[in-house]
């Protein structure tokens, strides 16, 4: 019986799901509510200088890259399965498009993180 390559995608999906469950709501809250309104956190908490410092730090780079990579692969598999649940049995075509986007987003994030020095 042919071995499925699903474990590769499922492992990334699982890791992304775990990370999303732990930090995604708080990320949305901080970046979408707390900082922009300036009431709960100071408005300059995410200023350009501070974010640049984060993106120039080795651990900061790794954290940002992991968030992008794992969230993209998590969302990708969820969307792929959702298409199937909704009756679109797209097969490997949709898989290539969805995970292709995830790979491109990861490469873009990596390039940007390297470019900021």
């Amino acid at each position: 019986m042919k071995r499925s390559n699903a474990p590769v995608f499922w492992a990334l999906f699982g890791a992304g799901g775990m990370l999303a469950a732990l930090i995604a709501p708080m990320l949305v809250f901080i970046t979408g509510v707390a900082v922009p309104t300036g009431r709960l956190l100071p408005a300059d908490a995410m200023s350009y200088e501070r974010m640049l410092t984060l993106a120039r730090n080795g651990f900061g780079k790794l954290a940002l890259l992991l968030v992008v990579l794992l969230f993209m692969f998590h969302g990708g598999l969820r969307m792929y399965h959702s298409l199937h649940h909704l009756g679109f049995h797209t097969g490997s075509g949709a898989k290539a498009v969805i995970f292709g986007i995830a790979v491109l987003a990861t490469i873009a994030a990596a390039v940007a993180l390297l470019a900021v020095g």
Binding site: M1, K2, R3, S4, A6, H85
Partner: peptide
């Protein structure tokens, strides 16, 4: 394990 590892084994499930 061979059956479990295949597309028609555990990987046919989307955890509905």
């Amino acid at each position: 394990m061979d059956l479990a590892n295949s597309d028609h084994g555990v990987w046919g499930c989307t955890l509905v």
